[in-house]
Design a protein around this nucleic acid. Structure first.
Lengths: 337, 337
DNA sequence: GGCCAGTTTTGTATCCATCAACATCACCCC
DNA sequence: GGGGTGATGTTGATGGATACAAAACTGGCC
């Protein structure tokens, strides 16, 4: 009653008293409203600093019926590209004043469902999801109907009413394939990936269409699916060589597959980039530094982050105006192919 | 006033009415208290299901003055071991009923500070941090004093009053070094890492002490620090070979450094595991599958997760009883050394 | 002084689950 | 029968910020 209560938290009320304004004004400053004069704002900020006040997000979220958390569901954080993407997304989301809650579905449908169910309890500002194979459009639409703004990235769930941010996969593999054809290679393979994800179809389509358009008669083409990790790459190239011993060039579903392929070629005593051309997709940080440096397609994780932020910022408008953002990619020829 | 208000959220009150109990009882069920009869519990769960009630964490956190969020600050998510660790941690933390908020400091001190400041606004249940080099013990202690239970992992900030979970680094490199000595190698190098982090000192200590204990007179030892990525490994081995052209065996600070070293050796036409032995530390997923398979030290990310959870569970007791949990490591000899 | 339109500020109700303290109940013991 | 004991259940106040509407300023002008 008399002594200053040590155990009590400092609230907007204390700040208001210290600054000589009402708590509403403090709240306006905290939410960066422009309806507050420079003078009041300064007084409030000074008081906040003096008291060491810490904003209470729980109380804010309770009243405003929405937190500033953005759920980010990544399919597989142990995949280097996903990690790179997650880091970029997190930074961008934070720069918008949101906090990202990064979770990993591990490509497991049940885990993904549980995660989203749990995330809902936080009244997310938005949900960014790189959907696991087999994700149900109806389920995703349910989440949207429940009031969560959903943004799909990297992979498309057909029929979902959520805006989408993906790299231009078709363009990427088209450029790679054309490059290899231009060098005179006619025995080509596409290895890695899995038909249950949309980007596989797109990347393969870029490959196939380019071959078709070239109208060459002496082509020999091999296609091998494989798990998206190094080991998958190793196995796939083994299979591809079995199916076509005169293989000249390999388009890999992504860089990790390419890493595996290159390792396996080394082990077989064949020199990648010389005996056989290898190209990837993603342009991981290591790809430019390995030997041989990997020919690949650069996806700018930063641009993906920016696109997601554009959608986050737009809120309403976004869904209607930009249902699908295609992020440009860049072909990077290096010594491996 | 009369019609059912469509826009209104379903709350514990609605559930209580549907189940024919009070809202406190519903709350008890939600917090999994054992002070509620099986019969009431069933009624409540049925009502929750029927109404499609979603728990509101914000309200809960506001009243209970603590959220169920656990902040996880990782130093560098693009490092594969960190990613592996983060995934393991996240899974464990979730299994305890908490939600992990994964953020990436990118080894940047200012970012780390900002992140923690932001995380504080959520009244974290705990903060798990893999501290960036240069982290100030006093700053960390301030956070603890502010009421956040802090757990350090992988790296130690000397003077911080936070419990610590680290792998047995000394044992790891000791075993590696002894193994190399046993094979008769006398020209050894330790490459990679940086003296501003505690694990570097520990791993180097394991190396040095083992050499000392061996009491050999014909040793030639090289030590090269380098950034912890593949490129660092490539550069470091280049330097090491310059300093000792007859190098026989290399102890790498971690697997990523070893990957770089192996690549560079390949490029120089020297066969790792045959011309020169290479060993790593971490045992990344790829390490057992590459060629040559990498001799390394296995750190079980799961065990780290378990140890962290033990600390999370204990609350009070933990800090006193288990200030420092040393997670056992396992030496894995393979063909690279 | 009074009035206007626009900008700032303030008072009050509200968001929803939890806590503390208090009822209730069945059961048993002396 | 009085009252103790332990398990369940309930009431009412509470946590800290924001939404909303109403009030209090602005400065200019009749």
């Amino acid at each position: 009653m008399t002594a200053n209560n040590v155990n009590k938290n400092i609230t907007v009320f204390d700040v208001a008293r210290q600054a000589g304004v009402s708590k509403s004004t403090v709240s306006l400053v905290l939410t960066e409203s422009d309806k507050v004069s420079e003078k009041s704002k300064e007084k409030v900020l000074k008081a906040i600093d003096e008291l060491g006040y810490v904003y209470n997000r729980d109380a804010a979220a309770l009243r405003s019926r929405r937190s500033n958390l953005v759920g980010v569901v990544i399919n597989d954080l142990t995949n280097p590209y996903s990690a790179q993407l997650a880091v970029g997304l997190e930074r961008h989301i934070r720069s918008l004043g949101y906090m990202s809650v990064l979770v990993n579905s591990g490509e497991d449908l049940t885990t993904q469902k549980q995660l989203v169910q749990q995330l809902k309890e936080y009244r997310l500002a938005a949900l960014v999801i790189c959907p696991t194979p087999g994700t149900d459009a109806q389920w995703l639409n349910q989440q949207i109907d429940a009031g969560i703004p959903v943004i799909q990235i990297m992979r498309e769930v057909v029929g979902a009413r959520a805006p989408l941010v993906i790299p231009d996969n078709v363009k990427g593999t088209s450029l790679v394939t054309q490059h290899l054809l231009d060098q005179g290679y006619r025995h080509l393979a596409f290895i890695g990936g899995n038909e249950s994800i949309s980007d596989f179809h797109e990347r393969l389509a870029g490959f196939d269409r380019t071959l078709l358009k070239a109208q060459l008669t002496n082509l020999q083409i091999t296609r091998i699916q494989a798990p998206t990790n190094r080991h998958g790459g190793r196995q796939a190239i083994q299979q591809a060589l079995q199916s076509d011993p005169n293989l000249q060039a390999i388009v890999c579903f992504n860089d990790v597959i390419a890493y595996g392929a290159i390792e396996q070629l080394h082990a077989l005593g064949r020199i990648p980039g010389k005996d056989i051309a290898v190209a990837g997709f993603d342009d991981l940080e290591d790809s430019c530094r390995m030997s041989p440096a990997l020919t690949t397609v650069h996806i700018d994780a930063d641009k993906i982050g920016q696109a997601v932020c554009r959608l986050l910022g737009n809120k309403k408008e976004a869904v209607a105006s930009e249902g699908r953002i295609l992020v440009d990619v860049e072909f990077i020829p290096r010594s491996s192919g």
